[in-house]
Design a protein around this nucleic acid. Structure first.
Lengths: 259, 259
DNA sequence: GTAGCTGTTTGGTCATTGCGAACAATTAAG
DNA sequence: CTTAATTGTTCGCAATGACCAAACAGCTAC
């Protein structure tokens, strides 16, 4: 039923829109930029860049501060809207907050989009370490517990597509970088209903995640607890925390406004 | 030095980009939409709408779920980025949280952009009422305490421009709808360094706001406390709460990473 | 099975995009 | 203070490509 195909489909494109998207991405990448800077960066002529920015400015997707153009706060509105469009967002947020409170660690909530994982909420308990992830960050799925919990619910063919598009870049020496290893891991995850990240994204960081799945098999996302390896020893890591996360995921599944 | 002119400037525009912006706005307005729906809504041909959406999809600014296109979570990333570009965001957020904790009411933080106010953070204390405002919401400046606190720092000519563009729509019978009244009020605000909203945005709701200003006169935003008229009686409203908000604004001014 | 709704695709034309280059307005250097 | 080197803005022109109309396909419902 759902058709979230990852591969780029055929059909016609609007080049001017393509250009504008590139400019927006460039503005996001850098901390805003001037016309000349963008000209050098993107290869478009100054006149072209200028006209695009003028249009984006008029439509308030961009702000002009002196001679610099920056991503506008309109994106905050749109982003908030998109976040709330995620059916389970509110309940997931609640449960993540509870998880952080209960465990004292970092709890997070992720959803898949365009073949990557998007962090939608993060709560920090009393002993929580500072993780680099931030709300809205988009990260490859193969290298986090959250991502693997999501991938485990996808049909193999879909996972292949995603890897074809985004690869399996290594972040630490523990990162899974071969398909064989990944599919083995995903099978285990399906059996245990929990995904582990043992310093695969960042050394010193461990993570337990549970998928949030509807009865019809549609994957909705995943939640996790993260912390330092020193506090995530085997007993607590594999049993206690795993159970807590699974429980929270279950609460979300039950309470979510289902279709 | 700064050049945040409100009026639309001359120069060339890219029509295709204009079209895409309209489509994005329409997608935001509705809860996502299909091609035919957008065709009716915007007046563009089906082929045009389709091509634009295909381009936006490829650039991941939009998601396709079945046959509906929706604003993507990429906007969350961009929005978060834009929020953090506001120099005083972090410290303001902290102080707003404290305000809510201390007073038990709703505390908020607003910044100006494109002649309107954008809510950037909201915290709810123990007795806080449910206000309709949400993070990212863009609201006319004349009808809230936050907005008026901001307007009070602008030169009169700039305020005139903003009113020319956005008008002074009435939300309650207390809303300020004439320029004379507004400029009188702004003068008082400048003297007291606090702005009041006495059921001007929503009946039953009162609000105290203080502007956040740098030494060079650049206005950075405003923070506020809101609550029911029943709890915001004159003594507490005009003295206690006003002082608390002013104090918090001052903390932000001092602690902000100044230029 | 037909009718009405979707989304997608295809030609063709005219407007428009995008470039080069000149102009203006700052800033940096001498 | 003058010159030089940036920046942003505007203009004219040529070729591209954006837009529409209409045909096609896929789905649902009646």
């Amino acid at each position: 039923m759902s058709n979230p195909s990852t591969s780029s489909e055929g059909g016609r494109r609007i080049q001017a829109v393509e250009t504008t998207c590139e400019l927006l991405d460039a503005l996001r990448e850098r901390d805003g930029a001037g016309v000349s800077e963008l000209t050098r960066e993107t290869g478009y002529s100054k006149a072209t860049v200028h006209a695009h920015l003028a249009t984006l400015l008029e439509n308030e997707f961009v702000v002009k501060r002196g001679n610099r153009y920056e991503i506008s706060l309109k994106f905050v509105d749109f982003g908030e809207f998109a976040k709330n469009s995620v059916a389970i967002h509110d309940i997931a947020k609640q449960e993540v907050d509870k998880l952080a409170e209960q465990t004292g660690e970092v709890a997070q909530f992720m959803v898949e989009e365009h073949g990557r994982g998007v962090y939608l909420h993060k709560a920090r308990g009393k002993n929580a370490i500072r993780t680099a992830s931030y709300t809205g960050e988009r990260k490859d799925l193969h290298c986090t517990a959250l991502g693997k919990a999501i991938l485990a619910q996808f049909p193999r063919e879909r996972v292949e597509e995603i890897i074809d598009e985004h690869g399996m870049a290594a972040h630490t020496e523990n990162t899974i970088t071969t398909r064989e290893e990944l599919f083995d891991n995903l099978e285990t995850i399906r059996q245990e209903n929990v995904a582990y990240d043992d310093e695969e994204a960042l050394s010193g960081l461990r993570c337990v995640a549970a998928p949030i799945v509807y009865k019809n098999g549609d994957i909705q996302g995943a939640i996790s607890i993260s912390g330092p390896t020193s506090r995530f020893k085997d007993e607590r890591f594999r049993d206690e925390l795993a159970e807590v996360v699974r429980g929270a995921a279950n609460v979300i599944e039950v309470n979510s406004t289902q279709v």
